[in-house]
Amino acid sequence: MTLRLATRADLEGLPLDIAPRLLGAQLQTVVDGAEVHLRITEVEAYHGQGTGPTPDPGSHARMGRTARNDTMWGEPGHLYVYLSHGIHSCVNVVCGPDGLAGGVLLRAGSVIAGADAAASRSGRTGRDLARGPGRLGQVSGLRHALHDGIDAITGDTLNGARAQLWLGDPVTGIAAGPRVGVAGIAGTSAFPWRFWIDGDPSVSPFRWGRGAADAQAMLN
């Protein structure tokens, strides 16, 4: 596969349009001198307030700009690193024009370089190293709030870390469906904003978010 460093122009579209394009891409990080390369196999799109034609009730930026989601409103190519359940650092690629909020959550990936560093950070080995957004964030070495806003286009260092996003050839066999663990209508087939490489063993399992199964039943 031929890889090239992503540009801001590559990420200026709506997250819903950019998300499938990130499948097969690579996130390369160097944190405290340890390098890890992750091939992205599963993503989810999120739109902020006023972004795109459909309001997204599952987005951190659905109610507007806050201190927490500020990175989502910035120029594309930065990484929005947020804390989930007070424990897990999760990594999103900011997409869309500067001033409109949007991001693509990196839900899962496979470690293609730096397996020793990834295993040391996670205490795991094998295909589950980066299966799920918390695990992916863990093995990448990127941490909230130290690395929130790090620039994956320029590769500039932020608090001992560097990150770069590399794009490859478009992949085939892409599947789409509801987002994982998202509450209410935002986690149903009304928002098939999760994309993954069908059959890839690193993809995380689906689970309903709070109230999403009931909301789905009402849609059926």
Rank of each mutant, 00 (worst) to 15 (best):
L83Y: 01
S202E: 12
I87D: 05
A6D: 09
T2D: 15
Q26S: 09
W196V: 11
H47Q: 15
A176K: 13
A215T: 03
V104L: 06
P57D: 08
L136T: 08
L16W: 13
G211R: 00
A217H: 03
N159D: 15
P133A: 10
L106A: 06
G173H: 09
R68Y: 06
G209H: 02
C90F: 02
I18L: 14
G134T: 09
L106T: 08
L11N: 08
V43F: 01
I174H: 07
A19E: 13
Q26T: 06
G33T: 07
I18Y: 07
P192T: 02
A113Q: 14
G123C: 11
V43I: 05
E42C: 02
E44A: 04
Q138C: 14
G48A: 03
T172V: 13
V111G: 04
V30K: 13
A212P: 02
Q49D: 03
E35A: 14
P15R: 04
G187D: 04
A117I: 12
P133F: 08
R210L: 05
I153N: 03
S122A: 13
V30T: 15
W193Y: 14
E12P: 00
H147M: 13
A113S: 15
G50F: 01
V182E: 05
G181P: 05
S59M: 00
G137S: 06
A101R: 02
V30N: 14
A215P: 01
N69Q: 09
A45S: 04
A101E: 04
S140A: 15
G50D: 04
G58R: 00
G99S: 04
A108G: 08
V111I: 15
R179Y: 10
H88F: 09
V182R: 00
D128A: 14
Y80R: 02
E12H: 05
